Amino acid sequence: MDEPGAVTLVDAHHHLWDLGANYYPWLSDQPEAHFFMGDYTPLKRNYLPADYRRDARRHNVLATVHCEAEWDRADQVGETRWLTGVHEREGMPTAIVAHAWFHTPEGEEVLARQAAFPLVRGIRSKPVTSLSPDRMTPGAPGTMQDPRWLEGFARLEKHSLSWDLRVPYWHLYEAAEVARAFPRTPIVLNHTGFPWDRSPQGLAAWQKAMEAIAREPNVHLKVSEFGLKDRPWDFESNRQVVLRAIGIFGIERCMFASNFPVAGLRIDYDTLVRSVARMLEGFSERERRRFFVDNAAAFYRLAGVSTNERQP
Rank of each mutant, 00 (worst) to 15 (best):
G142S: 08
Q201V: 13
T185V: 15
T143G: 04
W71V: 02
V262G: 00
R135F: 08
M210A: 07
R89S: 12
H159D: 05
L43H: 07
V10S: 01
K158V: 14
A95S: 13
S125H: 10
P147D: 01
S28K: 15
L43R: 03
Y269W: 11
G264L: 08
M144I: 10
P261V: 05
E70G: 06
L280R: 02
H14S: 04
G91H: 11
V305I: 14
D134W: 09
S28W: 12
M136F: 10
P25K: 06
R81Q: 12
W101S: 13
E68M: 05
E70A: 12
V120E: 01
Q201C: 08
V65C: 05
T80Y: 01
G264W: 05
T137P: 03
P49K: 04
L83M: 13
A296I: 07
M255G: 03
L156V: 08
H171I: 02
Y47I: 03
H103P: 08
R286F: 10
S162V: 06
I246P: 00
K44Y: 08
R239I: 03
D234Y: 04
Y300S: 07
N46T: 10
P168H: 03
G142E: 08
W163Q: 13
Y40V: 05
R121K: 14
R290F: 09
H14W: 04
A245N: 02
I187F: 13
K126A: 15
Y173P: 04
E174A: 13
F283G: 07
P42W: 02
L43S: 01
I96G: 00
G85T: 10
H99N: 12
V305W: 06
V276H: 01
E157D: 14
D2R: 15
P133K: 09
D134F: 08
G193T: 02
H103D: 15
A204F: 10
Y40Q: 06
F291G: 00
P261E: 01
A98Q: 02
S28C: 15
V223Q: 00
A33K: 13
Y173T: 11
E174H: 10
E32V: 09
L228E: 04
F291C: 03
P168A: 06
W163E: 04
R135S: 14
D197E: 11
L62T: 04
P105Y: 01
H13P: 07
L265H: 02
N22V: 02
V305A: 10
R266V: 12
F291Q: 00
F35V: 06
V110C: 02
Q114F: 05
P49M: 05
P147T: 02
A74L: 13
L27D: 05
A6N: 06
H99T: 06
V120T: 06
F292L: 02
R253N: 01
T94V: 06
D230A: 05
I213H: 02
V167Y: 03
E32L: 15
A56H: 01
V120A: 05
I246H: 02
D55R: 10
W149I: 00
V276F: 07
V273G: 01
K44E: 09
P31D: 07
I267D: 03
G142A: 10
E88Q: 15
S130Q: 06
E174K: 07
L62V: 08
H34G: 11
